[in-house]
């Protein structure tokens, strides 16, 4: 976004401006409401929810639903709460994000600074992989994970997420390194630096922003994934999203809405946190998703 253009050429009158603000505020309400209500109702006792008004603030503040969602709620067969699944997600997300980002950085470096015949074609193949409907790989992936002894395991999920995130990370780094001056690489070559040294000493030190973009994008996507988790995980490797769905959809017993909400917020918390801390980069990541970056 260009910084210099503070003065807009478009002028608007008073009435129009009031209408503008009104519409914008209405939409802000639309976006905030569902989540806000979820937060409010997660600290209400169940009776207040089923009997009362969802917009009303709690009369009895209680954090029991949160504690229950985290530690004791019945998910699957055991009353473990979401806690173990939260750690499953962490154990899956961290290596998957790290590996796919490192590979993406190297790929982007090769594809922009060490070009060779058919490199655009190869990039095209990688990029296309971002957009395939994952349903097409579900059956063979289940087979391969089974054959490799990775079925239902966290390393299996890491592999899956690395493979299908690679296209995006490569795209990010390629777009970023594309505008990194090639003359610098040439100067370093004349100075006698080799492939890895140029990467390590020249490109990597100025890759901070794009590393953040890539990490945030991968983190959000992998954390929020449901399809792969639901398809390839076992009870001891299920990620947070799958556990949350099991919690919410469980048909046994009373529906404890407040616990569901607390669980949903718990599942959303890491990505929301990332978004609050590094929202700027998050937007950039989304933008770069539109290929051009």
């Amino acid at each position: 976004m260009s910084a210099g253009s503070t003065d807009t050429a478009v002028r608007t009158g008073r009435i129009t401006r009031t209408a503008l603000y009104l519409v914008l505020l209405l939409f802000a309400l639309f976006y905030l409401l569902p989540f806000a209500i979820m937060v409010i109702n997660s600290v209400k006792p169940l009776t207040e929810i089923t009997g009362g008004n969802m917009m009303a603030l709690p009369q009895d503040w209680t954090f029991d639903p949160w504690v229950k969602a985290w530690a004791t709620a019945q998910i699957g067969v055991d009353p473990t709460g979401l806690k173990p699944y939260f750690w499953n997600s962490i154990k899956m997300v961290v290596p998957a994000v790290a590996i796919s980002t490192i590979l993406g950085a190297l790929n982007g470096y090769v594809l922009t600074k060490w070009r060779f015949k058919y490199d655009t074609l190869i990039f095209g193949f990688m990029l296309f992989a971002c957009f395939i409907p994952f349903q097409i790989v579900l059956i063979p992936m289940a087979r391969i994970l089974g054959l490799a002894g990775l079925a239902g395991s966290t390393p299996g999920l890491v592999l899956v997420h690395v493979v299908y995130g690679l296209g995006f990370t490569t795209l990010y780094f390629k777009n970023y390194y594309q505008v990194f001056p090639t003359e610098l690489v040439r100067a370093a070559q004349i100075d006698g630096a080799g492939f890895f040294r140029i990467f390590w000493r020249l490109l990597l030190p100025s890759s901070g922003p794009i590393i953040v973009v890539s990490v945030i994008w991968q983190f959000t996507n992998i954390w929020n994934d449901f399809l792969f988790g639901a398809s390839f995980a076992d009870f001891d490797s299920q990620p947070m999203t799958v556990a949350l769905n099991n919690l919410v959809q469980s048909s046994t017993g009373v529906k404890e809405y407040n616990v569901h909400f607390a669980g949903a917020i718990l599942a959303a918390l890491p990505t929301l946190l990332v978004y609050i801390v590094a929202g700027r980069y998050f937007v950039r990541g989304l933008m770069a998703g539109s290929v051009k970056g």
Binding site: P181, E183, L184, R186, A187, A188, I190, R201, L202, P205, S206
Partner: peptide, 14 residues
């Protein structure tokens, strides 16, 4: 050989 580039190609981080 040594080369001086149009953009100077100075390493920005050094």
């Amino acid at each position: 050989i040594a080369m001086v580039f149009q953009s100077y190609a100075l390493y920005p981080n050094m």
